[in-house]
Design a protein around this nucleic acid. Structure first.
Length: 726
DNA sequence: AATATTCCCGTTTTT
DNA sequence: CGGGAATATT
């Protein structure tokens, strides 16, 4: 079409040949295999703008990102390229939620359905387990939740699941799944996985709607395609079934969500799915120094069966990757804090620094050390904020207001603040609702017929009155609605006096109000339902703020897609990174490869300086244990690393007990533990297991010998690193 | 019915 | 270690 020539030209400036090819590819499927730091975001942004200026209009483009933060940033960047408004940029979940609200009648759900958060989902799963007359002790809700989630990610509803169930265990899960779905229907609630599954299902069954949407979204761009699950894959393909204008970007080496149903084959088989697909490889890295890239590349090269990519950079080598060995987790945190102070006095801003860890539990030591050193920091944990009691209380009132069927919220707030409505009263009301076939909410708020409650009737009436006081908020925009509810529910009064300890619930409520105000200023037309939806779909990184003058702490998973000049990765230890649980999980190569990719993702976030640290003794869930360094550190090519041991010599060299436990206690052995045998010499534990209840170890020795030993009889000595003399 | 206390459990990562 | 649930106490 060639309209607007000069600005279209501008979109192609400063692009390499492959980048330009990706931006200008018009109709037909396109796969962009983009290594870390290869300018992928720039390509997607420019491509979206380019399409909007040449062959489509903005509202015909659908761009799917992995986080809301990415969606917001991409939306802003595209807008700044002056292509007109109306482009849809969202996460899969947000897109699906919006679609389901608009087409709720077609999908067979209530318009104001509740989106269950993690806690609420667990509650309902637990309720389902109890409904099946099973005990949550024998059937841990967390496990059941995972099974149900897996089924949903795989597009298996309860009926399909029941059909494929094999064995008594599956059948029990199937019963729980069925009960869970019934509860969700009753509560007019959907969980995260439902959002995707329902939309995929709808698109499969409702050809009219599918056609209509495909016609609307003439171009579809999906980022982080390597992390899509079956439901997401289906949605993408159903929306592009006839026009095939699907552009997938991603990197198989950065696939880190297999545990939640992501299927790396989605990206690997893109070319078979779309035989005429154009494939563009972005292999030049603009982000990291040569040493950082070489180290990361050396690590990922150990994964087998991958699509090899030749990562390269023109950037200078820079400083070697620093491999820091510390004595303990607290030392590690302190050394990092000291190092940050040093960086700071060398002129670096705190905004430019990030610390990554595999598990959230590792953030505490870091927080303490940073606080002690007077370093400002922020943690990527938006979800945690919305999990606080006072926040959940307010949101529950709002959710109940818009969706009276939401019994989870009702039960949460009926006695919050305390109204003297106890378990007995609630039980009686539930029984009453069941026998009369009424909805619990209607029983509770029914002014006339509460006589069966006796003395408690007046208390329940007080709750009904509160709900009626709140009702006008339904018509307000988010901020005033929120303020109205906080004031009229009694929560404001309750939390104003409850400011004990270092928690400050009242302040958190105010923060929530400003979050609502913020949302409202960005989306002036947003309703309270929109805002609730947005809060339910928030991710940890969404809460990060730029220009705060603070170091950023986050999990490795949260770090995906980000970059920082200076990065520290902590806890490079066997069992932590790569993570595995001590009991189960046989060494599964798929798992370790995903852990390796996770490590790769973390390393490739770093632009200038990367430090990877481990602690010889790590305290986790209250116990200090001797650790073994991560095999990932061993994979890093020598020429690009610098090894630095900050362990106090002899600090733990004696045979003395550590925190009341003998260091040679077999309880402390993990996979990877070094051992010495009188004839075979030095070896490493490959597996741990039991023979008739007695612990055994499968050991591989330096001399090539391999054998299984009973730990209590074998002459195996545990070896600490200082004894090996590395 | 509400609060205080103990104990027991898990134990990655998250839209 | 820390949260949640069961138990004890008022």
């Amino acid at each position: 079409m060639g309209r607007n020539d000069s600005s279209t030209e501008a979109l192609l400036e400063n692009l390499t040949e492959p980048q330009r090819a990706a931006v200008t590819h018009a109709e037909g499927p396109l796969l962009v295999l983009a290594g870390p730091g290869s300018g992928k975001t720039r390509v997607i942004t420019r491509r979206a703008a380019y399409l909007a200026k040449t062959v489509a209009s903005a509202h015909q483009i659908l761009a799917i990102t992995f986080t809301n933060k990415a969606a917001r940033e991409m939306g802003e960047r595209i807008e700044s390229l002056d292509v007109g408004a109306g482009m849809t940029v969202a996460t899969f979940h947000a897109f699906c939620a919006r679609l389901l609200r608009i087409h709720h009648d077609r999908a067979g759900i209530a318009r104001n359905f509740t989106i269950l958060d993690r806690d609420d989902r667990r509650k309902v799963v637990k309720e389902a387990i109890e409904l099946c007359d099973l005990s949550p002790t024998n059937y841990p809700p967390a496990r059941m939740e995972q099974r149900i989630g897996q089924a949903k990610n795989d597009m298996q509803g309860p009926v399909a699941y029941a059909e494929s169930a094999f064995g008594p265990n599956d059948e029990t899960v199937s019963r729980i799944y069925t009960a869970y779905e019934e509860l969700l229907t009753e509560y007019q609630s959907l969980d995260f996985d439902d959002l995707l599954m329902r939309v995929a299902d709808l698109l499969q069954k409702d050809e009219e709607l599918r056609t209509q949407l495909e016609a609307k979204y003439r171009f579809i761009l999906i980022d982080e395609y390597q992390d899509t699950n079956r439901a997401q894959y289906l949605i993408a393909h159903l929306l592009a079934r006839d026009h095939h204008n699907i552009c997938a970007t991603g990197d198989p080496d950065q696939s880190i969500y297999a545990w939640r149903g992501a299927d790396i084959r989605n990206i690997l088989s893109f070319e078979t799915d779309h035989p005429n697909a154009k494939v563009v490889r972005l292999e030049q890295n603009y982000r990291s120094t040569g040493h950082i890239l070489a180290a990361a590349d050396g690590l990922i090269a150990e994964n087998i069966g991958r699509k090899e990519k030749a990562l390269w950079t023109e950037n200078e080598d820079g400083a070697p990757v620093r491999i820091l060995e510390c004595e303990s987790g607290t030392d590690e945190a302190r050394l990092i804090a000291e190092d940050i102070v040093a960086q700071q006095s060398a002129g670096l801003g705190l905004d430019e620094i990030a610390v990554f860890y595999r598990v959230n539990a590792l953030s505490r030591a870091l927080e303490e050390a940073l606080r002690a050193a007077g370093i400002r920091y922020q943690i990527a944990r938006g979800v945690e904020f919305y999990g606080r009691k006072e926040i959940k209380d307010v949101l529950a009132y709002l959710r109940l207001m818009v969706n009276p069927a939401d019994r989870v919220s009702l039960l949460r707030v009926i006695n919050t603040p305390a109204r003297g409505i106890g378990a007995t009263t609630v039980r009686r009301m539930i029984a009453h609702a069941e026998s009369s076939g009424e909805r619990l909410f209607d029983v509770v708020t029914d002014e006339r017929d509460l006589s069966f409650l006796g003395r408690s009737a007046s208390k329940v009436r007080a709750f009904g009155a509160a709900m009626r006081d709140i009702a006008p908020a339904m018509e307000m925009s988010p901020r005033p609605a929120l303020e109205h509810v906080i004031d009229h529910s009694g929560l404001r009064a309750m939390y104003n006096k409850a400011s004990v300890g270092d928690e400050d619930p009242a302040a958190n409520l105010n923060e929530l109000i400003s979050a609502a105000a913020d949302h409202q200023s960005r989306f002036p037309d947003a309703t309270i339902v929109d805002w609730l939806e947005q809060t339910a779909l928030l991710s940890d990184v969404d809460a990060l703020r730029e220009g705060e003058g603070a170091v950023t702490l986050m999990t490795l998973h949260a770090a995906k897609g980000l970059e920082f000049p200076v990065v520290y990765m902590v806890g490079l230890e066997e069992g932590l990174l790569p993570f595995f649980r001590s009991d189960e999980e046989r060494p599964d190569s798929g798992h370790i490869e995903e852990e390796r990719r996770l490590c790769f993702v973390g390393m490739t976030r770093a632009m200038k300086k990367l430090t990877m640290s481990s602690a010889r003794y790590r305290m986790l869930r209250g116990q200090t244990k001797r650790t073994v360094r991560s095999p990932f550190l061993v994979s890093l090519p020598d020429h690009c690393v610098e090894r630095d041991s900050q362990c106090a010599v002899g600090a733990h060299s004696g045979p003395g007990p550590i925190e009341g436990k003998l260091p040679h206690d077999i309880e402390e052995w993990g996979i990877g533990t070094l051992v010495r045998h009188p004839t075979n010499g030095l070896g490493q534990v490959l597996h741990l297991g039991k023979i008739s209840g007695r612990p055994k170890a499968d050991v591989k020795f330096e001399n090539g010998h391999r054998g299984v030993y009973m730990l209590e009889f074998a002459e195996l000595q545990r070896v600490d690193f200082d004894e090996v003399g590395d």
